[in-house]
Amino acid sequence: MGNVNSSVTLALANGVPLDTLVLMLILPIIVTMIAFFRQVVGIKAFGIYTPAIITFALLATNQIKYGITIFVTVIIVGTITRYLLKKARLLYLPRVAIMITVVGFSILLLLFVGGTWNRTGLASVSIFPILIMITLVEKFIAVQIEKGNRAAVILSFETLFISVIGYYIASWPQLIKIILHYPWISLLTIPINIFLGKWTGLRLSEYFRFRQIIKPR
């Protein structure tokens, strides 16, 4: 750690773990990226919290492919379970509780199968990213009720897409180096967000959505 800012050195000397420091400094960049994707590109995802937390869940799994596998399993099992539970007409919270249980057991099965196939990397994924992914089910159901199945699946994959990009940004060595050297760079995201917050132009996705009106007749 040669080129490190003096405040960062001070924090490290006082016992703040390096990982914590890096993640806290990267967080503003991740959430700004999510805001940019929403306002300018038009990729919605599940708000800002979910893609951000999934990004960190991906960072916490040893390899990104295992994180993606777990995410996709949660969505697939969640959709099937909701379909099966539809007939039972249960109240909302008990229904979500059942779904979380079913999804949890499926993930357990997945880890077990991974272990027997000698995919030890999958079996040894730590528990917190797994729990985060499992609770994604509630968000997924809320959107299913609100906007229907198709929209929920699309939003899930948009969330995954943004999280994967977030993962690559957050694990980019050059960026980490820069941010440890100039930690205040993180605050540059505030003016960027003020600009995004006042932006009234068309989103990229809207150029596609309104293509029939835009194209010259």
């Binding site: 009234t200 132009g201 068309l202 989103r203 309104f210 009106i213 010259p216």
Partner: peptide, 12 residues
């Protein structure tokens, strides 16, 4: 193209 684009109301 630009004229049509300017007249469209986007989500933002």
């Amino acid at each position: 193209f630009f004229k049509a684009r300017r007249n469209i109301l986007g989500m933002n």
